[in-house]
Amino acid sequence: MEYEFLYNGKSCTISLDKGDGHYKVSLNDKVIEVDASLVSPGELSMIIDGRSVRAFGARSDGWRVICIGGVQWVLGDPAAEESSGGAGGAGGTGDGMITTPMPGKIVAVHVKVGDVVKKQQPLIVVEAMKMQNDILSDVNGVVRKIHFEPGDQASFGEPLIEIEVSE
């Protein structure tokens, strides 16, 4: 079984073969034998070459976080990236009000008031869980109001940009 994850935009591919209580894991031309057990939801016990490794994991929309030894790694889901042009994707409902699909920090604003924008045009970049997400316009129109500046923190569902929709 093949799995693909994104880390900082880079693709990492890994394949799993289930054997007799063990897994054969192939990545980067290496094959690793792992004795793995899901001991409770989100909590994985692995024994790799006799070494005990405890991993914790959780997932949300478009990303997964893995924690080993107290260090967290956020991995993106390529499927979510493809479908929305970013883990966040377009945060609009077609009425010209673009809202945050996730809480995060505004790292860039690509447009200014008065700009004519097209559908699927990147408007703003929100950083959440270490991933930069392009927020795309879901309408054609003119930017009327921008609610945030780079550096601002936006919570879930807050209005980011108001666009006057043109036909």
Partner: peptide, 24 residues
């Protein structure tokens, strides 16, 4: 540029083991 092997291994295993029904 990529996470350590065991992080990716854990991610794949969690995908597999937490999936309803089967390791697949």
């Amino acid at each position: 540029e990529v996470p350590p092997d065991e992080v990716l291994v854990a991610a794949a295993l969690l995908e597999s083991l937490e999936k309803p029904g089967a390791a697949g």
